[in-house]
Design a protein around this nucleic acid. Structure first.
Lengths: 288, 288
DNA sequence: TGAATAGTGTCTTTAAGACAGTATGAG
DNA sequence: CTCATACTGTCTTAAAGACACTATTCA
């Protein structure tokens, strides 16, 4: 675990020998001489709760955007951690999941956001991360948050929209006034990424427990893509992609809540890419 | 062009009203109180020169890694520029291309690198960018570089390797000892990204002049993917993808250097995604 | 004239999607 | 029993790849 501070330990990076004149130059180096740009990580943590996509949000305890909902995140600890480590730490701090449970969470870098005006305090560059997790416990708010909650994405995403907004629908517990900073744009990018990752990677399984049925898997695709898929064709397709899922030999103990036979159980296979991919249907309009 | 400094102008971000108590809090805010993490952008600029993929490198004038070759890049100007603007600026400074020519360069964010030990001076987070450009002029070195040059990727990439390394081959002008910092990893990620972007976007056209033949386009794919493609099937495939290329109605003035009829000229169409995609053949082994 | 290239025709194989049909289990 | 569901069979269409062929131009 690399956790060195330059001032304490100007040891060579990558095992390279540092010439003695360079040593002297390094000793005279003042990190504060550089322009102050702060670096944060923000995490878009997605999970399915009752077959509905939720994102983890925190309510900001202090300014700026006090009282607004925002993505969990915080400053990178200089000299102490990698970006991936910082993202995992922030996620753990906000959700209360222990290190062991974090192993089951897929975490990947999404992109960086650095408009000078995105934070009124100063120029802050944020490295956004995307997390896929199986049903996680209710979060406990961290130190710098007034509250933390899993929020239905349908209540936030203007594209997917409140598509369950039928006549007799409950009002969503949506944070009023949008998200803090540019977090709405980050969330939109995260959903785009998630939707396309389902096409060519087996990451849909990251939303499920270790053992799952093909119908469970289909429910993930349907919820994240926002469209119904043909059950029979989906079933055959998933089983035909090498390394996507492997049979456990078991079945569910009971049929579905509305009847039907017991379903076979599968766990994730060893493929990291799906070939051929599961392409989303009817995307002509998004091409141009 | 947003170019505000927080200390001069704590104006609201995103047109939001700032409460007066928050104004007071912002006035007391000290950017230097935060941990010093520097932010840089590094650009992987790729171009084709004589049908061979090249990357723009600079030779470092000062420590660390003095004399080593590295990706062009530099510190983000705090409060003055977006990350995209910083990347475009660094690219312009190192290549000498003017703003008009920069319009023809495709520039996209690649990813961020922030291991604490990646720079011996201090904790530096670098936002890597990927640039695709048509045949650019020879670079002129910037202020902090001893030299700048287009370097054949084949002489650097351990995966693609010196695959032209036949018996009577010239020795490559490869920088000895690898690239500075973690730039070899960044370059590898850039090549991965470029190879897969050719599959599902029309970005291969970004390496070509405005008018090109189908054979020119095929040469881009063959060079970046590192494998020969079937000329006839490629031709038909490209023309069958809606919005990939559009005919100009013209043909080349002469046939190829080794004979053959005049080829029809095309320019890029309006598609942003290729559907169906041009999938790379024979990638079974990379799936797991 | 010979060789290399642009572009087209056609056949085979694979994969996607529409649709139907059987078996199982909950209520 | 009824109905929803798990899963399988089959047909149609789209697309990828192999191969062949013609026409054009350079050397």
């Amino acid at each position: 675990m690399p956790s060195q501070s330059p001032s304490q330990d100007p040891s060579p990076a990558f095992g390279r020998e540092v010439p003695s004149d360079e040593q002297a130059w390094l000793a005279a180096y003042d990190p504060h001489a550089f322009a102050p740009v702060a670096v944060t990580v923000d995490v878009v943590a997605l999970t399915l709760r009752q077959d509905e996509l939720h994102v983890l949000l925190v309510q900001r305890a202090g300014p700026p955007f006090q009282g607004c909902w925002a993505l969990p995140g915080g400053f990178v600890r200089a000299g102490q951690e990698d970006l991936d480590q910082a993202a995992a730490r922030e996620l753990a701090e906000e959700t209360g999941v222990d290190t062991a449970a974090l192993q089951r969470v897929h975490l990947e870098q999404l992109g960086s956001y650095g408009a000078p005006s995105r934070d009124p305090r100063m120029h802050v560059v944020s490295i956004a991360y995307l997390a896929f997790a199986p049903n996680l416990p209710a979060p406990r708010p961290g130190s710098d948050a007034a509250a933390a909650a899993w929020v239905p994405v349908a209540s936030l995403d203007p594209v997917a929209g409140p598509r369950r907004g039928g006549p007799g629908d409950h009002p969503r517990p949506a944070p009023a006034g949008g998200l803090a900073f540019d977090h709405a744009a980050i969330l939109a990018a995260a959903l785009d990424r998630a939707r396309s990752k389902l096409e060519y990677t087996p990451l849909a399984t990251a939303f499920l427990d270790r053992e799952f049925t093909i119908s469970d898997l289909r429910a993930v695709y349907e919820e994240i893509w926002g469209e119904k898929l043909h059950p029979g064709n989906f079933h055959r397709k998933v089983l035909s992609v090498p390394g996507f899922v492997e049979s456990t030999g078991h079945t569910t103990a009971h049929g579905g809540s509305r009847g039907g036979p017991r379903a076979r159980l599968y766990h994730r296979g060893d493929a990291r890419l799906l070939h051929p991919a599961l392409l989303r249907p009817d995307r002509e309009e998004e091409i141009r």
